[in-house]
């Protein structure tokens, strides 16, 4: 017999990212689900959750969670694990916290044997019906995480994570300690791109920006970054290349000699528009890695982490 599974998307969809749970519930309701799975748009009232828990074997609660992570981070975890990792959240404006509701459910014998929370780090909680760009990007991953939580119970005694980013969460605890104080300089003339990168990175790193190659080179001296994210086309079509060549100059008297080992992550959309393929080249394109536009937050974080780790070693 199939064990009953309840998925509740919680939140206020009139408060932009606060409504991510409701958006996930709607997406789930629009697709075929395994037998025994009930999906509810839980709205804003935390207490309403209690009534639906009776007789449920596994509850999957999808909600915006203030986890101090980059916006759009999706985490699947047991409530206790999540609670230890982030400050107590507010489930909604009108209800009470999800952890309080689960505590109450336990006190009156309604807590299901298995409870998983799919938490999504919001970027913006403000009046409005649309999700922020970061959460629009995260929505498919949140749906995938909910489906994964529906399909797969965590093994007894095992840590909860059921999706890669959740695994990343627990690993990242130690890494964040390492990341503290690391400075990243973004050199890009597109303010929207700078903002998107900043939103992704600012939870873990100190983020600075420059809007031209010249300003970027000046700020390298001022800030002494641990990593540079560098756009190619700015005022000129090759401005990014020139900045990288200046920074990696082989002239021992170069004014940038002391920054020649700072990792450079080159930002480009060129692979989408031409069949040309670029690769790091110490003579002609002295960068450490590329990242494609549009930038996926998970990919950006992974590349930044890797380059910083290489820099440390």
């Amino acid at each position: 017999m199939t064990e009953p599974v309840l998925v509740v998307g919680l939140g206020n969809e009139a408060l932009r990212d606060e409504g991510i749970g409701v958006h996930v519930a709607r997406a789930l309701l629009a697709q075929p689900l395994p037998p025994g799975v009930r999906v509810l748009d839980g709205g804003t009232s935390g207490f309403a959750l209690l009534g639906w828990l009776e007789g449920v074997h596994r509850a999957v609660l999808v909600d915006a969670m203030a986890m101090g992570r980059p916006p759009g981070t999706v985490v699947t975890a047991r409530p206790e694990e999540l609670r230890s990792l982030c400050p107590p959240d507010r489930l909604s404006l009108h209800g009470t916290g999800v952890f309080d509701v689960l505590e109450l459910a336990a006190a009156i014998g309604l807590r299901p044997p298995e409870v998983l929370i799919v938490g999504v780090q919001p970027a913006e909680i403000a009046w409005g019906l649309e999700l922020s760009p970061a959460l629009q990007q995260a929505l498919p991953r949140a749906v995938e995480a909910a489906l994964s939580a529906i399909a797969k119970a965590p093994a007894p005694g095992q840590p909860a994570p059921t999706n890669p980013e959740a695994t990343e969460l627990t690993q990242r605890e130690g890494e964040e300690e390492m990341a503290k104080g690391k400075r990243i300089l973004i050199i890009d003339d597109d303010p929207d791109m700078v903002e998107a990168l900043r939103l992704t990175l600012q939870g873990c790193y100190e983020v600075y920006a420059a809007s031209s190659g010249q300003e970027g080179l000046r700020k390298v001296k001022e800030i002494e970054p641990d990593l540079i994210i560098l756009d190619v086309m700015m005022e000129t079509a090759t401005e990014g290349f020139q900045v990288s060549l200046a920074l990696r100059s082989r002239d021992p008297d170069s004014e940038f000699a002391r920054y020649s080992r700072v990792p450079i992550l080159m930002l480009t959309a060129i692979h989408q528009t031409t069949p040309l393929r670029f690769a790091p080249d110490s003579d002609y394109l002295p960068v450490d890695d590329f990242i494609e536009k549009p930038v996926k937050p998970g990919v950006l974080l992974a590349k930044v982490k890797k380059l910083l780790a290489n820099g440390n070693s």
């Binding site: 207490f47 309403a48 209690l50 009534g51 009776e54 109450l104 006190a107 009156i108 014998g109 309604l110």
Partner: peptide, 13 residues
């Protein structure tokens, strides 16, 4: 406990 369970059931209804 019994009273809270009554409240939960009424609220669900």
């Amino acid at each position: 406990t019994a009273a809270v369970l009554c409240v939960v059931r009424l609220h669900r209804l």
